[in-house]
């Protein structure tokens, strides 16, 4: 099958989205792994000629809804695992932390929309398809997500947002 290599090529995109979605690196890779496994099981549902990446985001969305978002109190074991070092790509480590904390504070449904649009650069329509929601819902969740993020980052942490002129 030629699907193998193309799936492999998309892993970095899935990892990026998952990392932003769930925060923790190990949990994000778990989500990617579950998504790939699920994708193999559901590959017959993928329509050739359509966007494999968008389809994988759909699979990931479903896996995430079913698993990660289900109430899961933190296992004591998790707390004992050493934190993996997060590489700060911006000089301002505080800002990076604030961004992640603010992201984590968003409802998952809003976070998904924001990340698919702003990070993964999916069109509003693609985002609506991936999440199985109307495009109007995409827009309203996007607006709410951004506003909450803005308030969290400018208000609470006292970190001034970098405004791009």
């Amino acid at each position: 099958m030629s699907d193998g290599p193309s799936l492999v090529a998309l892993i970095p995109r899935l990892r990026r989205y998952a990392r932003a979605l769930v925060g923790d690196r190990a949990a994000a890779d778990d989500l990617v792994q579950d998504t790939l496994e699920r994708a193999w099981a559901k590959l017959h549902l993928f329509r050739q000629g359509t966007d494999l990446r968008a389809w994988l985001f759909t699979v990931m969305h479903n896996v995430h809804v079913n698993q990660v978002r289900a109430a899961r109190p933190t296992d004591a074991l998790e707390d004992e695992m050493p934190e993996l070092a997060q590489r700060a790509v911006q000089g301002d480590a505080l800002l990076v932390r604030d961004l992640e904390r603010a992201l984590a504070a968003l409802p998952a449904a809003q976070r998904e929309v924001l990340l698919l649009v702003a990070l993964e650069d999916l069109s509003y329509e693609e985002t609506a398809n991936v999440l199985g929601i109307p495009i109007g819902t995409v827009m309203s969740r996007l607006a709410r997500a951004r506003e909450k993020l803005r308030v969290l980052m400018t208000g609470k942490g006292g970190t001034k947002l970098q405004v791009v002129k």
Partner: peptide, 24 residues
Amino acid sequence: QLRARFGAVLDEPVPEQLRRFATR
């Protein structure tokens, strides 16, 4: 900021375990 923060993930080496999962 989102792209700057998470962009580096694209350049990380893909863990072997995930690579295996992406092949049949």
